[in-house]
């Protein structure tokens, strides 16, 4: 494992923990999109179908369990916790899941390396991860209410994506036959979706101001 891959995994982990800790300690999920969190739970559930069948390393298995556990915990908090769920911006978080899930599933059935149940769902999880942040970005635009933690959450997710791209570039030049179009294109698209948000994030950080998105 190279340093970019490890940094990517750690920022990904940090993003999820920041969100979980925020919800757990301040008992509020204001500004957090449940739609995005449910999509991430689906992403991990469909990607890690191999968790008990294909052993790669203790690190991999452990991280998979952490991502599955944390994403489902966040969804549970937002839907079922008697205090947290009251702070959920239900009326603003109106993005429909199936607008993203159905096209990703269809695309995964057309574009895949092998037409099998696991391969199609694995490809589906890559496509869905690429667009899963959209309900969150829409919610931010609507409420324009971004506390520091929500901003940091999205910033860390973006950093994770950027590190993974460096990881792929590194592996492309250091490992023979390392060419994987599907995750690369899905990953590149996902990183681009953060570009706009990053612009405003850095702008507010540079001017030492609270992050505000334009209407």
């Amino acid at each position: 494992m190279n340093i970019f891959r490890f940094a990517g995994d750690m920022t990904h982990l940090a993003s999820v923990l920041v969100l979980l800790l925020k919800i757990h300690t301040i008992k509020s999920c204001a500004g957090v999109s449940l739609k995005t969190q449910e999509l991430y739970a689906i992403v991990f559930a469909t990607r890690y179908l191999d968790i008990f069948t294909d052993f790669i390393s203790l690190y991999n298995t452990f991280m998979k369990l952490v991502f599955l556990g944390s994403s489902f915990s966040i969804v549970w908090y937002m839907r079922s916790h008697k205090i947290v769920r009251r702070s959920y911006d239900k009326d603003q978080d109106t993005f429909r899941h199936y607008f993203l899930i159905v096209p990703c599933l269809l695309l995964a059935m057309i574009i895949n390396e092998k037409f099998t149940f696991r391969e199609v769902l694995w490809t589906f999880s890559l496509f869905l991860e690429a667009v899963a942040i959209l309900p969150q970005l829409v919610l931010l635009q609507r409420t324009r209410n971004i506390d520091n933690l929500t901003g940091q959450y999205i910033f860390l997710l973006g950093a994770y994506r950027a590190f993974y791209i460096f990881n792929w570039i590194y592996r492309y030049f250091t490992e023979p036959h390392y060419v994987h179009w599907i995750p690369w294109i899905a990953g590149l698209l996902q990183t681009l979706l953060y570009g706009d948000f990053f612009y405003y994030y850095f702008h507010s950080w540079k001017n030492n101001k609270k992050l505000q998105l334009p209407a």
């Binding site: 891959r5 995994d9 991280m63 036959h177």
Partner: peptide, 10 residues
């Protein structure tokens, strides 16, 4: 070719 290579990523 992918199995064992990309699937070692998360």
């Amino acid at each position: 070719a992918r199995s064992g290579v990309t699937k070692d990523e998360l």
